[in-house]
Design a protein around this nucleic acid. Sequence first.
DNA 1: CCTGGAGTTGTCCTA
DNA 2: TTAGGACAACTCCAG
Length: 482
Amino acid sequence: MCWFRQDLRIKDNIALNTAASDSIVLPIYILDEINPERFKMGQASRVWLHYSLKQLNKELNGKLLFFKGNPELILAELSEKLNISEIYWNRCYEPWRIKRDSKIKEKLSNMGIKAHSSNGSLLWEPWEVAKADGTPYRVFTPFYRKGCLNATLPRKPIARPKDLNFIPDTDLTITNLPTYNLDDLNLLPEWGWDKKIKDNWDIGEQAAKNRLNSFLKEGINGYKDGRNFPSQAYVSRLSAYLHWGEISPNTIWHAVQGSIITNNQNHGIQNKNIDTFLSEIGWREFSHSLLYHFPDLPTKNLQSKFDTFPWQENQRDLEAWQSGSTGYPIVDAGMRELWQTGYMHNRVRMIVGSFLVKNLMIHWHCGESWFWDTLVDADLANNSASWQWIAGCGADAAPYFRIFNPITQGKRFDPNGSYTRQYVPELSALPDKYLFAPWEAPDIILEEAGVELGKHYPKPICDLKLSRERALKAFSEIKVNP
DNA sequence: CCTGGAGTTGTCCTA
DNA sequence: TTAGGACAACTCCAG
């Protein structure tokens, strides 16, 4: 039996490969809505998962079996009734899954069934990367350079199984388990808002491969600088595929390494692009390592002095942020991109994150849970580590005095305003000069652009200078009184 | 064991 | 107009 989880692919899938080389395979997926507790899948994730499973099932000739419930019971029942002696899966690293899976392993072992788990989603196992004294790294650069790059090279991807033969005609009626088809899992929402996500993304293993190929052709050449400009296509957009395991980090790593140029006059620049991109994959590893070693990362400040930080509870401000109506165009553009596509460009994630946590002084938990629900790449490790980073309470975090100015950031990183105008079309006729601070535009300019502030587009929700000073003051106080 | 430099992503003020 | 320094505190690590 091969239990698919967050490895929804055929290629470079260690569990599937080992299972297939040993025997005929029964591929299954279990929707577990019992064990995650506080971190049940978000809505956008469910949509992505639905289509990803659909593609995977196609690749498996429609042989994928779907179940819903507690995996411990389902796996035990299946193995017993179908006479299965070996179960294969690739590891997941969220604390609740580690807990669940080791319990499952123990139970299966008591039943005389062998469970084989492999690493299918990280380049380095979190427990293998440690400082000389055995404790985990808390700073990215030494983690990545010394702990990862200097330790071992990432495993090379393996080909799809040569022979993939399935257990024929599985008769599930001899089990006590209700059977489902994909639609019965009810991953899609009641009304059709998921169409936006479907229209914006090709989902599945082949789509992941295509995305990587076009990134290698177009994005990586110019990644280092281009990655900062949300209107340009330099970022890889591989995050969701990686999260669901439609592509492995090993495949990406070696494909990117393989594109290193040695005999071109631009090779210096190009190799910087490659290093910068690979270090982003390194950040993914760092986040997973942090979550592994600090399982409270999603809920507790890594730096406990932040426990007394005076976060503001303000539902109105939070809703303005969520709905993209803060009155700061670059912030609103980002939040609307997220709502419309299930994705937000990395540069803009930092801007909206800083705005929520520092200008509005709203708890990073609120940002974290909104992203968790709306991002197609929602990932517990990346999401919590990154929110803690922007809030300043995390590992190797942004210094407290680093407060992004949404006007400056807009002008610098969306200089011709095309990103902002795409998602905030009511401001599209406003000249560049005022696009990021429409309230500064003279009345005549606003009128010509057809904008009445407070009617077509909100007035700014807070004062940048005052809110900045308020945040700096709050941060300086927790510094003195830890 | 101690010391000192360096560390993803910024902004603001002053000279 | 622009460059440089200030804005903490702490971890990591080379020497």
